[in-house]
Design a protein around this nucleic acid. Structure first.
Lengths: 345, 345
DNA sequence: ATTAGCACTCTCTACAGATGAGTGCTAACA
DNA sequence: TGTTAGCACTCATCTGTAGAGAGTGCTAAT
């Protein structure tokens, strides 16, 4: 167990390192008024903290730097939420000022503001389209053997797919099918679409409209709506401004990773509700040892939820980021729920 | 006017520098078998080339480096197209193998392959949506006061906008309007849309259907189809591998620029037909002094055209890039024209 | 238990000298 | 007269050294 003095010193050390990015020494610490001890005392405590694995030295006579274990302890036990200034809250709220209805734009704008306020990179997952419901289905023929299928969801989102028409179907055939599908599919969640289309096929068979079968099959093939996570970034280059990425090799690594985020589907969904912090090698699997990722979830109505994340160096300003994410996720919950509700009225 | 020997030496110097990124010296050059002269002779010629502004020294006793004027001369007069291996042509052709109908995917894939083959960054402009024609217009009501307007184009592209319904219009009002609009607007280019909607307004007024006016106005407002160039990148990070971007500051600059390409609408459209090379400070306005941009245009049918570009350091492999762009733009012309034609049949 | 003092370690910077690649110029050569 | 060998010179880069500065660990005094 750590003594109060050790807690204090650990906290101040981490804070200082986060601030300056320089190893912090005992003399330097003793100058701070929060720390009323002499350098020698601090040295002793730091040595103990090092033995326990919370601090590290870069070389024998350097100051100390927090270890991952140190950050972890700091984050779990010493994190005092930071006040967000009114100015900044106002800036966050500005996202919702324009009364946009397009959730995509709201999310995109949020990402930008978040990265501006933190000076790290933000990543936002778009809403899961598959949890929206079909509002209207229609087909527009393009050529003799191709047409575009359009699904409008209750959220105003539009999915469209070009598909091939297997034989020569007349316009009235297609119209008939559109009617059947609308009858059966309006109100259905997009992720149930495939399944429900099966039911339609059965229905069509029973109605002796068997000739529509091929058409539905082709349609069914085109309408696979992947769980394709739309990912929005804010301030991709912000990371390059951090001193830890002065080395181009490291910068390249992290940029590469960001381009391929969608290939790691686990990243956000594994997270629990609320705010979650993953430090350094804890997200080693993703090849970013020098980075921490803070994610926050928000709820939209009862069924949907979204994720925001900030990615920065392990030496990131946890206090501030956590507080900002807290405000932002709360606002997103509230505003997106409001929009969704108005659409279901 | 340059002598043949000077031409040779300039060419070999540029080639060598492109290859090694190191200033090239006279001794080094004389070792090459294409250059049967002694270092002293080469020194004399190089001194002359420097006087004429084609070469530069980084310091008094360094080897020479091509100046921008040198690159320009090289590009204009000494560029011998490079053979593209069958392997590589095959790789390019693989874009079109899957018989995709979605031009967007073809373009995206092209961008990736191009950057893979060149190890620079590629930028592709999506097709200009505004040159497509309206195939079908429809409206799907979402709530009492909002609806989504959908335009399907002859190319299978779908544009959609959420707009607010000013007063309580009945479903039949809206249906009426959709019919009127379809009557007037099918076949119209998207860039004419605004104008033609004016005409519809006039028509509606004359038909004494004046009450639809507000509806059309709101719709008109939503249907601004910006000349928003969709920009696709391939291999954004490739540039970071180039030695000239080892300096993080420079890397940041260029990355920043790339994120904001769409804010420089002039970049691609000013270019003439065919292949165009812009070296170093020639694209100074865009803040990329160390880069060259090679653009190539391709034609789709009679009316549309597209642009591909490769962006790399001034010390880029012009020979190779030009040849690759040549092949790629030819293929894109051919294949996209084919697809377009099939859609107009 | 805390702190002052001291020897020690390690990094960083500056400076000097050696090295080597390259140049310009001049004189000899074909 | 065009080409080349030779030579002195320049400059970047590397190496080694010395000193400053920041920090540490340990010990003894408070």
């Amino acid at each position: 167990m750590l003594t109060n003095r050790q807690l204090l010193i650990l906290q101040v050390t981490v804070d200082d390192f986060i601030d300056t990015a320089q190893p912090v020494g005992s003399r330097q610490l003793s100058k701070k008024e929060e720390v009323p001890f002499s350098p020698a005392t601090i040295r002793n405590e730091m040595a103990d903290l090092e033995d326990m694995g919370y601090l590290e030295k870069t070389h024998t006579s350097s100051g100390r730097v927090p270890s991952e274990k140190g950050y972890r302890y700091y984050v779990d036990n010493l994190l005092t939420p930071q006040m967000i200034s009114k100015e900044e809250i106002k800036q966050i709220r500005s996202v919702f000022e324009e009364r946009k209805v397009e959730t995509e734009q709201i999310i995109r704008k949020s990402a930008n503001i978040l990265s501006e306020l933190t000076s790290y990179t933000s990543i936002m997952l778009g809403l899961d389209v598959r949890k929206h419901r079909v509002k209207r289905f229609s087909i527009v023929p393009l050529t003799d053997d191709s047409a575009v299928a359009i699904i409008v969801t209750d959220s105003g989102h539009v999915e469209n797919r070009v598909f091939t028409i297997p034989e020569a179907f007349t316009a009235s055939d297609i119209e008939k099918m559109v009617n059947i599908i609308n009858e059966h599919l309006v109100g259905v969640y997009l992720h149930e679409l495939q399944m429900k289309l099966e039911a339609v096929t059965q229905f069509v068979l029973r109605q002796n409209n068997g000739r529509l079968n091929d058409l539905i099959a082709s349609l069914n093939q085109a309408l696979v709506i992947e769980h394709e996570d739309k990912v929005y970034y804010g301030g991709k280059m912000q990371l390059l401004s951090q001193p830890e990425f002065n080395d181009v090799e490291k910068a390249k690594n992290i940029m590469y990773w960001m381009e391929h985020v969608n290939e790691f589907p686990g990243l956000f969904h594994l997270n629990k509700k609320g705010i979650n912090i993953s430090i350094g090698s804890e997200n080693n699997q993703f090849g970013m040892n020098n980075c921490s990722i803070i994610t926050a979830s928000y709820d939209i109505g009862k069924e949907q939820s979204g994720s925001i994340a900030i990615i920065g160096p392990t030496r990131m300003d946890y206090k501030r980021v956590v507080s900002l994410l807290d405000v932002m996720s709360g606002d997103l919950s509230r505003e997106l729920s409001r929009i969704l509700r108005s659409q279901h009225e």
